[in-house]
Design a protein around this nucleic acid. Structure first.
Lengths: 233, 233
DNA sequence: ACGCTAGGCGTACGCTGTACACCTCGTCAA
DNA sequence: TTGACGAGGTGTACAGCGTACGCCTAGCGT
């Protein structure tokens, strides 16, 4: 840097924000201490004056994403509130596609993470759920409280040739039909019977809300029936 | 190696089995190509004559774990069959604690992986579920078909000092009560009101079966009511 | 005026996956 | 019997990673 041009000083916050930008642009794998330092016009080791390790950097990135989720209207009943908060988290996570993997990889629970979990738990408690039932229901929701579902059919970068060869594709379909008829059936169901677009994936948003509602339905039913854990202390 | 002592030749299978052993003993992070090669008395690059990359090695490891799950009695009805198969997968995964992370990290679906998914799907289809409903229910189950739940409260290596200081612990509890009352409530519910063992985690097996049954209940209800996706093509 | 310290710099270490060239066997055809 | 060939083990090397450690300098408080 040329002398005389004072550089905006680094800070933990600026650093984390830059990391989020970098991840948004180039994916989470592109976020290395070296790459991040270069983007900030600084030597790699300079970063360590502001974050203790890459792990806490990632913690900070997750916090920043979670800070984007807006709180639901307090007038909503428990079910609408949970739904709103979770779908809000989903919107935030979808804005940062790397966030899913980042959240899953975190081992420490930061205050921001705890705050989100706490908020969800309180929706249930305020709605009349027992702490016990709330606990189990939170477990049942699992990662879904962050707005994403455990990815079952996730595709890779999806950058392959889309339809390399109809002949070959037919062969794949035949093989699939013979060896995995169940998968074929549900895959074609997803595409309305169109065999040619089987690998296309499905409406993730629909699947997410379907599963979320299924779980909330079940929770509601248990709560109404005065569920209490029996086999469990 | 001393001359004259013929070494059992490497093979893709032997290699994968050794990797599984290594992961069982030392964790998945200890499975590096170098460490694996050393364990086999061979130079790292020798492994690449039998596996194309570390990724396909991991695929193979997952396949080997999945090969351990036993098929359920064909006489069972759909619900018992799904339950049995999933809990069978769970037993296999629990025998290899690294398998959870390994499965989540896989991006390719091997034949063995597809076979498991296919088997689960067929339980539903054979039970009278429409392909459509089966599809959504499979999504709702998500990673749970592998026998583990999306980890919400997972603890780290749990090797820290168990109770460093009662005074300090009380401070933590006070802080928790103020900032995250919801979490405190459900955490104490899990331990029967025992504040001192809050960080201890809970009965994972119970939580897993609770969530599984919640989902299967919901699925059953939808199937009985002749559910068909409406808003969805 | 002086020393302290926050913060940026440079070097270096040990680790990772793996590309590439080589070398050495066992097998099989001529 | 010989000669080619391919499977499989070896060695070296590269680029990248996180980060420990020491130095150096500008700004600030006393």
């Amino acid at each position: 840097m040329a002398p005389g041009t004072a550089r905006t000083p680094l800070s933990s916050h600026r650093l984390i924000a830059a990391a989020v930008d970098l991840a948004d642009e180039a994916g989470i794998d592109a976020v290395s201490m070296r790459a991040l330092a270069q983007r900030l016009g600084v030597v790699p080791m300079a970063l360590y004056k502001h974050v203790a390790s890459k792990d806490v950097l990632l913690d900070g990135m997750v916090d920043l994403v979670l800070a984007e989720v807006e709180a639901p209207d307090p007038a909503l009943d428990w079910r609408a509130a949970v739904r709103a908060r979770v779908l809000g988290a989903r919107r935030a996570v979808l804005r940062h596609p790397w966030a899913r993997r980042a959240i899953e990889s975190r081992t420490h629970r930061t205050a921001v993470v705890l705050a989100h979990m706490d908020a969800v738990a309180r929706h249930f408690l305020d709605g009349g759920f027992s702490p016990d039932l709330t606990h189990h229901v939170m477990h049942a929701l699992g990662n879904r409280i962050w707005g994403f579902s455990p990815e079952l059919f996730e595709e890779g970068p999806a950058g392959d040739a889309p339809a390399p060869d109809p002949e070959q594709q037919a062969a794949v379909a035949r093989e699939l039909a013979q060896r995995f008829p169940g998968i074929l059936a549900i895959a074609t169901a997803a595409t309305g019977g169109d065999l040619s677009s089987v690998g296309q994936g499905c409406d993730e948003q629909f699947e997410f809300e379907f599963a979320l509602d299924l779980l909330l339905d079940g929770a509601e039913r248990l709560q109404r029936s005065g569920w209490a854990s029996t086999a469990h202390p």
